[in-house]
């Protein structure tokens, strides 16, 4: 029989794995409530914070401001904590790496799934799965091709493997043709994938210039 860390029977003994896992998490929740470890309102707060707060992520807003304002861009690259404070975020562990015509940056965590939740929200499942985590360091161009990004061979690829508590975010290239857009108009162009470094940003045809 399969045994879990406490010697108890594990999900393999139950026909419906999801239901068993749900019951086990409920048991943990219940015990931690009982012991005064889990605040009773915390689950609802987490759901509100990550599931219902679907507005523009701080990361996208910071990128749009950096595109619109060279001084802010310097601040974001050199003093990210101060740059994020402009959006009411007191977060000191972010490092921002800038894409240029000569350099493309891409972020991974090969050892677990480190990701800047504070500025980019919840990580997508693919970011946490073995395919991306194994391949991003050894064949980033092949991975990028699967995401629809074809880099010229001479463009340098820099892969940032988040092995400590610092978190990385890519400052993508501002799309050609966006020169007349305001900061507010730029925000929705900044995709989550571009902040991870697996997408480039193009001007959508529907966005009116200026």
């Amino acid at each position: 029989m399969e045994r879990g860390p406490g010697g108890e029977a594990t999900s393999k003994n139950h026909p419906n794995v999801d239901q068993y896992v749900a019951s086990r998490v409920r048991a943990l929740e219940s015990l931690l409530l009982e012991k005064g470890i889990l605040p009773p309102d915390l689950v609802d707060r987490v759901v509100r914070q990550y599931a219902e707060d679907t507005g523009p992520l701080v990361g996208a807003r910071a990128v749009a401001r950096a595109w619109a304002n060279p001084e802010y861009k310097r601040l974001l690259l050199e003093q990210p904590k101060a740059a994020l404070a402009e959006f009411g975020l007191d977060y000191g562990d972010l490092r921002v790496v800038e894409n240029t015509p000569a350099v493309h940056n891409m972020v991974v965590c090969t050892l677990c799934s480190c990701y800047p939740w504070a500025v980019m929200g919840l990580p997508p499942t693919w970011y946490k799965q073995p395919a991306y985590r194994s391949r991003a360091v050894i064949e980033p161009r092949a991975v990028l091709r699967e995401f629809g990004v074809e880099l010229p061979p001479e463009r340098e690829v820099r892969v940032w493997d988040s092995s400590a508590e610092l978190r990385y975010m890519v400052l993508p290239l501002r799309p050609a043709g966006s020169e007349r857009l305001s900061e507010a108009q730029l925000v929705p162009l900044v995709s989550r994938d571009s902040l991870i470094g697996v997408a480039e940003i193009a001007m959508p045809a529907a966005v009116p210039a200026g």
């Binding site: 749900a22 689950v43 759901v47 990550y50 599931a51 919840l122 693919w126 799965q129 699967e146 995401f147």
Partner: peptide, 24 residues
């Protein structure tokens, strides 16, 4: 590990217990 498989319109959590796990 094969190709990177992406889920279109992925929800923040795939089941309520996942959010509970984050809170825990």
């Amino acid at each position: 590990f094969g190709p990177v498989v992406r889920e279109q319109n992925e929800p923040p959590f795939h089941a309520p217990w996942e959010a509970t796990m984050v809170a825990i």
